[in-house]
Amino acid sequence: MDQFLLIALNGLTLAGVYFLVASGLTLIFGLMRVITMAHGTSYLLGGYLGYVIARETGNWFLGAIGGAILVGLLGLLIHQVLIRRFQDDDMRVALITLGVSLIGTDLMLAVFGGTATQVPVPGDVQVASVSIPFIGPYPLLRLLVLLIAVVVGVALTLFITRTRFGSVVRAGVDDSQMTAATGVNVRVVFAIIFVLGSALAGLAGVVGGTLFPLLPGQDGVYLLYSLVVVIVGGMGSITGAAIGAVLVGLVSQFSLVYAPTYSLVLTFALMVVVLAVRPQGIMGRAV
C-alpha cells in the first residue's frame, strides 16, 4: 500500500512536468490550429538556459524566469519569420517546425555538449524531505514541482476564463474570423499566445531539468510525451492537458515499476484506448 501511494505520488509529480510542457502545446493548438513540433526543443533549450542562468547567478527563480522569457522571445521570432505566413496551412507549419527542431537539436548538442546536466537548486532544498502520512519522507523538490504545475494550471485557467484578454482568446478559438471582424487584432493575439506557449515550454524545461537530467534526445522525448498528453486529453483544452498529464504520468510510473521494458508501450496503449473510444481526446471537441 505504501509503495502504491509512493508510485502514485511520483506519477503525479511527473505529471506536473508533463502538464507544464503540454499546456503550452495545447494552448497554441487551441487558438491557432497549428502544431509546433519544435516544442520539445523549446523544453530542452529552456532547461539549458535555466541551468546556465541559475549556475551563474546562484538563483533558481532567476533561471526559471530567464529560461521562460528567452524561449518565449525565440518563439516570437519563429512565429513571425516562419509560421505567420502559413497560418492556414497546418501541415506546412508542422513540417517547418520539425525542421526547426532538427536544427535546434544539432546546435544544442554543439553548444551544451552530450553530457547530462541538471539545473542547480540550493543544497538544503535539494535534500530536504517532508513527511507524508502512509508514505514517509518524500523529497520536497518533487512536491514543489507539483505545486508549480498546479499554480500555473490554475493561473492559466483563470487567465483564459476570467480576463478580458482570455475572453478574446476564447472567441478566437471559436471563430477567429468573426473575432477579427469585431475589431480584435487576431494576429497580435496569435503572436502573444505563441510566445506564451513557448515560454511555458521553456519554464517546463527549467522545472523538469531540476528533477531530471538534461541531455540530447530529451527534446524528442518531451515532444513525444506532450503529443501523447494532448492527444489523450483533447487538443486545445487546458483541463484536458491536466487530465492527460495525470493519466500519462501515472501509467508511466506504475508500468516502470511493474513492467519496466514496456513502460512506453503501455503509455502508448493508453493513447490507443482513448483514440478508440474518443478520437478527439477526453476533453476535446469533435472536429
Binding site: I35, A94, L224, I231
Partner: peptide
C-alpha cells in the same frame, strides 16, 4: 489505429507510434 484520424492528428499519431517502437527496440 491511425486511420480514424485525419491530417495533423495522423501526423502526430504516426510520429508517436514511431517513437514508441524506437523506445521498445532499444530496450527489448
Amino acid at each position: 489505429i491511425a486511420a480514424r484520424t485525419k491530417a495533423i492528428y495522423f501526423l502526430m499519431i504516426t510520429l508517436a507510434i514511431g517513437q514508441v517502437f524506437y523506445s521498445w527496440a532499444s530496450q527489448a
